[in-house]
Amino acid sequence: MSSHETKPPHVPPPSLWPLGFAIGIACILTGLVVSWPAVAVGTVLAVVFGFLWIRDVTTEVREPAPHVDPETRHVAETTGAAPPATAGLEAMPPSTEAERDAYPRSTFLSAATLGLGGVVGGLITIPVLGFAVLPSFTGQKEQQVELGPLDDFPEGEWVIASYFEDESIGEVSRRTVFVRNNGFLEQAPSYTILFSRCVHLGCPIQPNGIVYDDRKKTVGNKQQVELTPSLVTGFGCPCHGGQYDTEGNRTAGPPVRALDRAEFSIRDGKLWLGSFYSVGSVDSTGARARIKKYGRAVPGVHVDGPEAWLYPIEIPR
Protein backbone atom coordinates (compact mmCIF):
# COMPACT_ATOMS: atom_id res chain seq x y z
CA MET A 1 0.00 0.00 0.00
CA SER A 2 2.82 2.40 0.81
CA SER A 3 3.78 2.86 -2.81
CA HIS A 4 0.30 4.18 -3.50
CA GLU A 5 0.38 6.89 -0.85
CA THR A 6 2.25 9.27 -3.12
CA LYS A 7 -0.71 9.36 -5.51
CA PRO A 8 -3.22 12.19 -5.21
CA PRO A 9 -6.09 11.48 -2.78
CA HIS A 10 -9.18 9.82 -4.13
CA VAL A 11 -11.68 12.36 -5.41
CA PRO A 12 -15.36 11.46 -5.52
CA PRO A 13 -16.45 10.74 -9.06
CA PRO A 14 -18.38 13.45 -10.92
CA SER A 15 -22.09 13.30 -10.19
CA LEU A 16 -24.43 11.83 -12.81
CA TRP A 17 -27.49 13.63 -11.43
CA PRO A 18 -27.11 16.65 -13.79
CA LEU A 19 -27.62 14.24 -16.68
CA GLY A 20 -31.02 13.16 -15.34
CA PHE A 21 -31.87 16.80 -14.66
CA ALA A 22 -31.00 17.67 -18.27
CA ILE A 23 -33.14 14.83 -19.57
CA GLY A 24 -36.03 16.12 -17.46
CA ILE A 25 -35.66 19.63 -18.88
CA ALA A 26 -35.43 18.24 -22.42
CA CYS A 27 -38.59 16.25 -21.72
CA ILE A 28 -40.43 19.39 -20.57
CA LEU A 29 -39.37 21.33 -23.67
CA THR A 30 -40.35 18.50 -26.01
CA GLY A 31 -43.59 18.05 -24.12
CA LEU A 32 -44.52 21.69 -24.59
CA VAL A 33 -44.56 20.99 -28.31
CA VAL A 34 -45.84 17.43 -28.33
CA SER A 35 -48.07 16.60 -25.38
CA TRP A 36 -48.85 17.69 -21.81
CA PRO A 37 -48.23 14.32 -20.14
CA ALA A 38 -44.61 14.50 -21.32
CA VAL A 39 -44.31 17.86 -19.52
CA ALA A 40 -45.53 16.22 -16.31
CA VAL A 41 -43.02 13.39 -16.66
CA GLY A 42 -40.25 15.88 -17.43
CA THR A 43 -41.16 17.97 -14.39
CA VAL A 44 -41.01 14.96 -12.11
CA LEU A 45 -37.62 13.95 -13.55
CA ALA A 46 -36.21 17.47 -13.27
CA VAL A 47 -37.42 17.91 -9.67
CA VAL A 48 -36.15 14.52 -8.50
CA PHE A 49 -32.77 14.74 -10.19
CA GLY A 50 -32.42 18.43 -9.31
CA PHE A 51 -32.94 17.58 -5.65
CA LEU A 52 -30.37 14.78 -5.83
CA TRP A 53 -27.90 17.05 -7.60
CA ILE A 54 -28.28 19.79 -5.02
CA ARG A 55 -27.90 17.30 -2.20
CA ASP A 56 -24.71 15.99 -3.81
CA VAL A 57 -23.21 19.42 -4.36
CA THR A 58 -23.98 20.69 -0.88
CA THR A 59 -22.59 17.63 0.93
CA GLU A 60 -19.42 19.44 1.96
CA VAL A 61 -21.23 22.59 3.04
CA ARG A 62 -23.60 20.68 5.26
CA GLU A 63 -22.37 18.84 8.31
CA PRO A 64 -20.26 15.79 7.47
CA ALA A 65 -21.95 12.44 7.37
CA PRO A 66 -21.65 10.54 10.67
CA HIS A 67 -18.94 7.92 10.73
CA VAL A 68 -20.31 4.39 10.66
CA ASP A 69 -18.11 1.46 11.51
CA PRO A 70 -18.02 -1.07 8.67
CA GLU A 71 -20.17 -4.09 9.36
CA THR A 72 -18.10 -7.02 10.51
CA ARG A 73 -18.93 -10.62 10.99
CA HIS A 74 -18.30 -12.43 14.22
CA VAL A 75 -15.52 -14.91 13.64
CA ALA A 76 -15.60 -18.05 15.70
CA GLU A 77 -12.46 -18.79 17.62
CA THR A 78 -10.16 -20.88 15.55
CA THR A 79 -6.74 -22.15 16.07
CA GLY A 80 -4.30 -20.55 13.73
CA ALA A 81 -5.08 -19.85 10.07
CA ALA A 82 -8.41 -20.66 8.42
CA PRO A 83 -8.57 -24.12 6.85
CA PRO A 84 -8.10 -24.28 3.08
CA ALA A 85 -11.22 -24.29 0.93
CA THR A 86 -10.46 -27.82 -0.20
CA ALA A 87 -10.91 -29.10 3.33
CA GLY A 88 -14.66 -29.07 2.72
CA LEU A 89 -17.66 -28.67 4.97
CA GLU A 90 -16.19 -30.72 7.84
CA ALA A 91 -13.44 -28.16 8.40
CA MET A 92 -15.93 -25.33 8.91
CA PRO A 93 -16.12 -23.98 12.43
CA PRO A 94 -19.28 -25.15 14.17
CA SER A 95 -22.07 -22.63 13.83
CA THR A 96 -23.72 -21.26 16.92
CA GLU A 97 -27.40 -21.63 17.73
CA ALA A 98 -28.03 -18.02 16.72
CA GLU A 99 -26.33 -18.48 13.38
CA ARG A 100 -28.36 -21.56 12.60
CA ASP A 101 -31.60 -19.76 13.31
CA ALA A 102 -30.69 -16.69 11.30
CA TYR A 103 -32.11 -16.27 7.82
CA PRO A 104 -29.07 -17.05 5.66
CA ARG A 105 -27.96 -14.68 3.00
CA SER A 106 -27.99 -17.34 0.28
CA THR A 107 -31.65 -18.11 1.02
CA PHE A 108 -32.51 -14.45 0.74
CA LEU A 109 -30.59 -14.13 -2.54
CA SER A 110 -32.22 -17.15 -4.16
CA ALA A 111 -35.65 -16.00 -3.04
CA ALA A 112 -34.95 -12.52 -4.38
CA THR A 113 -33.71 -13.90 -7.71
CA LEU A 114 -36.71 -16.17 -8.12
CA GLY A 115 -39.13 -13.46 -6.98
CA LEU A 116 -37.73 -10.73 -9.21
CA GLY A 117 -37.44 -13.17 -12.10
CA GLY A 118 -41.07 -14.14 -11.60
CA VAL A 119 -42.18 -10.51 -11.53
CA VAL A 120 -40.23 -9.67 -14.70
CA GLY A 121 -41.45 -12.85 -16.42
CA GLY A 122 -45.04 -12.09 -15.48
CA LEU A 123 -44.82 -8.50 -16.64
CA ILE A 124 -43.70 -9.76 -20.04
CA THR A 125 -45.83 -12.89 -20.33
CA ILE A 126 -49.23 -11.60 -19.25
CA PRO A 127 -49.61 -8.85 -21.89
CA VAL A 128 -48.15 -11.09 -24.59
CA LEU A 129 -50.52 -13.93 -23.74
CA GLY A 130 -53.42 -11.48 -23.67
CA PHE A 131 -52.43 -10.15 -27.08
CA ALA A 132 -52.16 -13.69 -28.43
CA VAL A 133 -55.58 -14.82 -27.22
CA LEU A 134 -57.95 -11.90 -26.60
CA PRO A 135 -58.14 -10.33 -30.09
CA SER A 136 -59.86 -13.51 -31.31
CA PHE A 137 -62.71 -12.87 -28.88
CA THR A 138 -63.08 -9.11 -28.61
CA GLY A 139 -64.47 -6.63 -31.10
CA GLN A 140 -66.33 -9.28 -33.12
CA LYS A 141 -68.89 -7.40 -35.11
CA GLU A 142 -71.78 -8.88 -37.05
CA GLN A 143 -72.56 -6.78 -40.05
CA GLN A 144 -75.97 -6.04 -41.46
CA VAL A 145 -75.98 -6.96 -45.12
CA GLU A 146 -78.37 -5.60 -47.73
CA LEU A 147 -79.32 -8.56 -49.93
CA GLY A 148 -81.20 -6.62 -52.59
CA PRO A 149 -84.67 -5.43 -53.62
CA LEU A 150 -87.66 -7.59 -52.67
CA ASP A 151 -88.51 -8.07 -56.36
CA ASP A 152 -85.49 -10.33 -56.67
CA PHE A 153 -87.02 -12.79 -54.21
CA PRO A 154 -90.19 -14.14 -55.83
CA GLU A 155 -92.60 -15.97 -53.55
CA GLY A 156 -91.91 -19.68 -53.13
CA GLU A 157 -88.57 -19.63 -54.96
CA TRP A 158 -85.05 -20.14 -53.66
CA VAL A 159 -82.32 -17.60 -54.30
CA ILE A 160 -78.65 -18.25 -53.53
CA ALA A 161 -77.24 -15.01 -52.09
CA SER A 162 -73.51 -14.64 -51.59
CA TYR A 163 -71.89 -11.55 -50.09
CA PHE A 164 -68.77 -10.22 -48.37
CA GLU A 165 -69.15 -10.49 -44.62
CA ASP A 166 -66.41 -7.88 -44.21
CA GLU A 167 -65.86 -5.85 -47.37
CA SER A 168 -62.49 -4.60 -46.08
CA ILE A 169 -60.92 -8.07 -46.39
CA GLY A 170 -62.75 -9.09 -49.55
CA GLU A 171 -63.08 -12.54 -51.03
CA VAL A 172 -61.87 -14.38 -47.88
CA SER A 173 -65.04 -13.29 -46.14
CA ARG A 174 -67.48 -14.35 -48.87
CA ARG A 175 -70.45 -16.11 -47.29
CA THR A 176 -73.51 -17.68 -48.84
CA VAL A 177 -77.12 -17.96 -47.67
CA PHE A 178 -80.14 -19.64 -49.25
CA VAL A 179 -83.19 -17.36 -49.21
CA ARG A 180 -86.80 -18.37 -49.81
CA ASN A 181 -89.74 -15.99 -49.79
CA ASN A 182 -92.51 -17.78 -47.89
CA GLY A 183 -95.14 -15.15 -48.71
CA PHE A 184 -97.25 -13.61 -45.98
CA LEU A 185 -98.58 -15.13 -42.81
CA GLU A 186 -101.39 -12.98 -41.39
CA GLN A 187 -100.00 -9.99 -43.33
CA ALA A 188 -96.47 -10.43 -41.90
CA PRO A 189 -93.79 -11.21 -44.50
CA SER A 190 -91.83 -14.41 -44.00
CA TYR A 191 -88.44 -15.44 -45.36
CA THR A 192 -86.48 -18.60 -44.72
CA ILE A 193 -82.73 -17.82 -44.70
CA LEU A 194 -80.42 -20.83 -44.33
CA PHE A 195 -76.66 -20.45 -43.84
CA SER A 196 -74.62 -22.45 -46.34
CA ARG A 197 -72.19 -23.96 -43.86
CA CYS A 198 -72.81 -27.60 -43.09
CA VAL A 199 -73.39 -28.09 -39.36
CA HIS A 200 -71.25 -31.19 -39.42
CA LEU A 201 -67.84 -29.54 -39.87
CA GLY A 202 -68.47 -26.34 -41.82
CA CYS A 203 -68.08 -27.26 -45.49
CA PRO A 204 -70.24 -25.36 -48.01
CA ILE A 205 -73.50 -27.22 -48.71
CA GLN A 206 -74.85 -27.21 -52.26
CA PRO A 207 -78.48 -27.22 -53.37
CA ASN A 208 -79.78 -30.53 -54.71
CA GLY A 209 -81.53 -29.27 -57.82
CA ILE A 210 -80.88 -26.74 -60.56
CA VAL A 211 -78.83 -23.58 -60.18
CA TYR A 212 -79.79 -21.02 -62.82
CA ASP A 213 -76.33 -19.55 -63.33
CA ASP A 214 -77.52 -17.72 -66.47
CA ARG A 215 -79.93 -15.73 -64.31
CA LYS A 216 -77.25 -14.68 -61.83
CA LYS A 217 -77.59 -11.05 -60.81
CA THR A 218 -74.96 -8.84 -59.20
CA VAL A 219 -76.29 -6.23 -56.82
CA GLY A 220 -73.87 -3.32 -57.06
CA ASN A 221 -73.30 -2.58 -53.41
CA LYS A 222 -70.22 -2.64 -51.21
CA GLN A 223 -70.87 -6.21 -50.08
CA GLN A 224 -70.68 -7.44 -53.70
CA VAL A 225 -73.92 -9.39 -53.30
CA GLU A 226 -74.61 -11.98 -56.01
CA LEU A 227 -78.11 -13.47 -56.37
CA THR A 228 -78.62 -16.73 -58.26
CA PRO A 229 -82.14 -18.21 -58.57
CA SER A 230 -82.26 -21.92 -57.94
CA LEU A 231 -84.63 -24.86 -57.87
CA VAL A 232 -83.96 -26.61 -54.57
CA THR A 233 -85.22 -30.00 -53.42
CA GLY A 234 -82.81 -30.19 -50.50
CA PHE A 235 -79.17 -29.57 -49.66
CA GLY A 236 -76.11 -31.79 -49.66
CA CYS A 237 -72.59 -31.38 -48.36
CA PRO A 238 -69.73 -32.57 -50.62
CA CYS A 239 -67.27 -33.22 -47.79
CA HIS A 240 -68.82 -36.02 -45.75
CA GLY A 241 -72.24 -36.52 -47.31
CA GLY A 242 -74.57 -34.68 -44.92
CA GLN A 243 -78.07 -34.21 -46.42
CA TYR A 244 -80.77 -31.70 -45.45
CA ASP A 245 -84.35 -31.04 -46.50
CA THR A 246 -85.57 -27.62 -47.58
CA GLU A 247 -86.20 -26.56 -43.96
CA GLY A 248 -82.60 -27.42 -43.06
CA ASN A 249 -83.46 -30.55 -41.09
CA ARG A 250 -80.90 -33.31 -41.35
CA THR A 251 -82.14 -36.21 -43.47
CA ALA A 252 -78.92 -38.24 -43.74
CA GLY A 253 -75.26 -38.23 -42.86
CA PRO A 254 -73.23 -36.98 -39.92
CA PRO A 255 -74.68 -33.51 -39.10
CA VAL A 256 -75.84 -33.14 -35.50
CA ARG A 257 -78.54 -30.48 -35.82
CA ALA A 258 -80.48 -28.48 -38.42
CA LEU A 259 -78.86 -25.81 -40.57
CA ASP A 260 -78.13 -22.43 -39.01
CA ARG A 261 -80.56 -19.65 -39.96
CA ALA A 262 -80.50 -15.88 -40.11
CA GLU A 263 -83.08 -13.30 -39.12
CA PHE A 264 -84.17 -10.70 -41.68
CA SER A 265 -85.59 -7.23 -41.88
CA ILE A 266 -87.12 -5.18 -44.66
CA ARG A 267 -86.07 -1.56 -45.10
CA ASP A 268 -86.96 0.71 -48.03
CA GLY A 269 -88.21 -2.23 -50.07
CA LYS A 270 -85.00 -4.14 -49.61
CA LEU A 271 -84.25 -7.39 -47.81
CA TRP A 272 -81.61 -7.16 -45.08
CA LEU A 273 -79.78 -10.01 -43.45
CA GLY A 274 -80.00 -10.05 -39.64
CA SER A 275 -78.05 -11.99 -37.06
CA PHE A 276 -77.47 -15.72 -37.30
CA TYR A 277 -78.68 -18.33 -34.86
CA SER A 278 -78.42 -22.09 -34.51
CA VAL A 279 -81.37 -24.44 -34.80
CA GLY A 280 -82.08 -27.73 -33.03
CA SER A 281 -84.77 -28.86 -35.44
CA VAL A 282 -87.70 -27.42 -37.40
CA ASP A 283 -91.31 -28.63 -37.37
CA SER A 284 -93.71 -27.82 -40.20
CA THR A 285 -92.58 -25.78 -43.17
CA GLY A 286 -92.35 -22.33 -44.69
CA ALA A 287 -94.00 -19.45 -42.88
CA ARG A 288 -95.57 -21.83 -40.35
CA ALA A 289 -92.26 -23.44 -39.39
CA ARG A 290 -91.72 -23.84 -35.64
CA ILE A 291 -88.01 -23.42 -35.04
CA LYS A 292 -86.10 -24.56 -31.95
CA LYS A 293 -83.79 -21.58 -31.76
CA TYR A 294 -80.45 -21.36 -29.90
CA GLY A 295 -77.47 -19.02 -29.74
CA ARG A 296 -75.08 -19.42 -32.64
CA ALA A 297 -72.83 -22.46 -32.14
CA VAL A 298 -69.78 -23.87 -33.87
CA PRO A 299 -70.50 -26.54 -36.51
CA GLY A 300 -70.47 -30.06 -35.11
CA VAL A 301 -71.74 -28.97 -31.71
CA HIS A 302 -75.08 -30.13 -30.36
CA VAL A 303 -77.42 -27.34 -29.29
CA ASP A 304 -80.09 -29.53 -27.66
CA GLY A 305 -80.34 -32.93 -26.07
CA PRO A 306 -77.96 -34.38 -23.49
CA GLU A 307 -74.96 -33.93 -25.80
CA ALA A 308 -75.38 -30.16 -25.46
CA TRP A 309 -74.32 -30.52 -21.81
CA LEU A 310 -70.78 -30.99 -23.14
CA TYR A 311 -70.78 -27.37 -24.26
CA PRO A 312 -72.03 -25.43 -21.24
CA ILE A 313 -70.04 -22.24 -21.84
CA GLU A 314 -71.23 -20.03 -24.65
CA ILE A 315 -68.65 -17.72 -26.20
CA PRO A 316 -69.60 -14.19 -25.16
CA ARG A 317 -70.43 -12.02 -28.17
Binding site: S136, I169, L201, C203, V298, L310, Y311
Partner: peptide, 28 residues
Amino acid sequence: IVGININGTAPFLGPFIAQFLQGGASIG
Protein backbone atom coordinates in the same frame (compact mmCIF):
# COMPACT_ATOMS: atom_id res chain seq x y z
CA ILE B 1 -62.25 -25.07 -41.80
CA VAL B 2 -63.03 -28.74 -41.22
CA GLY B 3 -59.94 -29.12 -39.02
CA ILE B 4 -60.79 -26.05 -36.95
CA ASN B 5 -64.36 -27.24 -36.52
CA ILE B 6 -63.15 -30.67 -35.39
CA ASN B 7 -61.26 -28.79 -32.68
CA GLY B 8 -64.49 -26.93 -32.00
CA THR B 9 -66.32 -30.12 -31.10
CA ALA B 10 -64.02 -30.84 -28.14
CA PRO B 11 -66.10 -30.74 -24.95
CA PHE B 12 -66.24 -27.58 -22.84
CA LEU B 13 -63.46 -25.49 -24.36
CA GLY B 14 -63.78 -26.69 -27.97
CA PRO B 15 -65.63 -23.63 -29.29
CA PHE B 16 -63.03 -21.37 -27.68
CA ILE B 17 -60.16 -23.33 -29.24
CA ALA B 18 -61.85 -23.06 -32.64
CA GLN B 19 -62.38 -19.32 -32.31
CA PHE B 20 -58.78 -18.84 -31.12
CA LEU B 21 -57.43 -20.82 -34.08
CA GLN B 22 -59.36 -18.88 -36.69
CA GLY B 23 -58.69 -15.59 -34.93
CA GLY B 24 -62.34 -14.54 -34.76
CA ALA B 25 -65.86 -15.80 -35.25
CA SER B 26 -64.94 -16.98 -38.76
CA ILE B 27 -61.82 -17.43 -40.90
CA GLY B 28 -60.45 -14.02 -41.79
